[in-house]
């Protein structure tokens, strides 16, 4: 029998509702908070002052724990998770996506799904807003930019308009 694969930041599965790097930071903070609360509760339980209670978890953290088969009961495991999540936060690939309108959560989750399916399973998105783009997205990877906006589509096509106009005048 093979040993169960040890979960590290490299094989963490990020749930679809963890979209941005800020969401990952929020996961780290929440696990740290839970770890502190549970450690304190364990100490109090040992002194007989209070029975330990299950901490309240956010939907993002619950989903993350479920998809990765992790539990926060053991202090050592919590510490490992915290360490690995910090590494994930620092090393996760980031795609900067600038939109012409405010991005809604549902659309961001669909884009995240595409990115994690196509580009990298742990990639996160940094969202920006630029109304001058009119429509589309301005995508920036570590070394390149990809202008998929309407402004970008129009910028290189002035010649076409002039040609159409001249053709129209010539036809008259």
């Amino acid at each position: 029998m093979s040993e169960p694969q040890v979960k590290t930041h490299e094989n963490f599965i990020l749930p679809i509702n963890v979209v941005t790097k800020i969401d990952v930071s929020r996961l780290v903070s929440e696990v740290e908070r839970v770890d502190n609360d549970m450690t304190a509760a364990a100490v109090r339980a040992k002194s007989g002052a209070q029975q330990p209670t299950q901490p309240t978890l956010s939907e993002q953290l619950s989903e993350f724990l479920n998809q990765n088969g992790l539990k926060l009961d053991a202090g050592l495991e919590r510490s490992t998770i915290i360490k690995e999540l910090r590494l994930l936060k620092d090393k996760a690939p980031v795609l900067h996506m600038t939109f012409a309108v405010t991005a809604d959560t549902e659309s961001l989750q669909k884009l995240t799904e595409w990115v994690r399916t196509t580009v990298h399973p742990q990639a996160v998105i940094a969202v920006g807003l630029q109304p001058a783009l009119v429509a589309g997205v301005y995508l920036r990877t570590p070394n390149h930019v990809h202008d998929f906006s309407m402004r970008g589509a129009l910028e290189g096509r002035h010649g076409l308009l002039v040609e159409e106009l001249e053709a129209l005048r010539g036809s008259k």
Binding site: A100, W114, P131, A135, V137, L139, N143, F148, M150
Partner: peptide, 30 residues
């Protein structure tokens, strides 16, 4: 004229289509 006329949901198919077309370049860069 077109500013603020489309929300991101309406643009999403077009964006994903364009990203699909440039998928290889994005993956290589990442």
């Amino acid at each position: 004229a077109l500013g603020d006329q489309y929300d991101l949901k309406a643009q999403l198919p077009s964006i994903i289509h364009q990203m699909d077309e440039n998928k290889q370049a994005i993956v290589d860069d990442m």
